[in-house]
Amino acid sequence: MTLSYTRADFQTDQEVRWCPGCGDYTILASVQQFLAGLGRPREEFVFVSGIGCSSRFPYYMNTYGMHSIHGRAPAIATGIAATRPDLSVWVITGDGDALSIGGNHLIHALRRNVNIKILLFNNQIYGLTKGQYSPTSEMGKTTKSSPFGSIDHPFNPVSLALGAEATFVARTLDMDRNLTQAVLQKAYEHEGTSFIEIYQNCNVFNDKAFIQLTGKEERVHNRIDLEHGKPIVFDEGRKAVIMRDGQATIVDAASVDPKAILVHDETRPDPSIAFALSRLSHGPFGPTPLGVFRNVSRPTYESEMSRQLEEAKEKRGPGDLGKLIRSLGTWTVDEAGAITEN
């Protein structure tokens, strides 16, 4: 059934309470816009979040939703998706929620390939608790809890997801609504776990963290837009990516044979080259790939679970409780107390 929705149909009557200027507003608008365009019945969407600024998201979506506990949204979403393959289940999480306290659930959801869509808002800072370093904050970052600079080596979320063999991995920017729409579309169509890292500006505690990718002058030089089937070139054609010694390497486009330039193939079964691309940047401080890194097909967790249930029913017939409680062998005691083995 295709319904005609506008963005307003996906808005709630709750006042949106992020700080003015927060990147979350743009992402919210993008997602509402995207869902409205699908024309799928609103009641079939479920948004699950953990704890953090981004995790308020479900309160602003006029769908089914749950604002749960810190880090556990992928587990809860797994329970929903595993029991209700008819629903479209989304996880809204942040860098602290998904990569620190909830790291375990994230990697296991990815490896199981549960049909959930994970949007990780990465602002590289703890916002809700007012400004501590996060697992994606750069080394040396000075924050309230690291006055002498962070000594924690950060995660690269895309590398992490690829390492867990996620079947769909992408990165986008809060401000780039076109790219976000395009990535959401592919993520939605993908059967299995879709992982999208969204660089999201926290203008209060970590402003301009992504300026190299959003600034008018900087972005031209630093955005590496991955397009399936096309050679990876950027900086207005001046730079290119090639594979050298097993690593993805940035070179002057003019210095190499055009055939040597890596052609992006998001459907490669092996994640190694996608991983190599993810290593081009260690945070948004220079040339950084954006777009879909990996998009491959593998049976989803719930389809396998449903298949086993169906097969069991076919083989053994629908469950018969009376038979079950007699399955370990029974004996009968008659009126006189005599016993017969059945």
Partner: peptide, 13 residues
């Protein structure tokens, strides 16, 4: 934690 998390999701659903 994931054990009970998945159960909470299933209950909601």
């Amino acid at each position: 934690i994931a054990g009970i998390g998945t159960a909470i999701g299933a209950a909601f659903a």
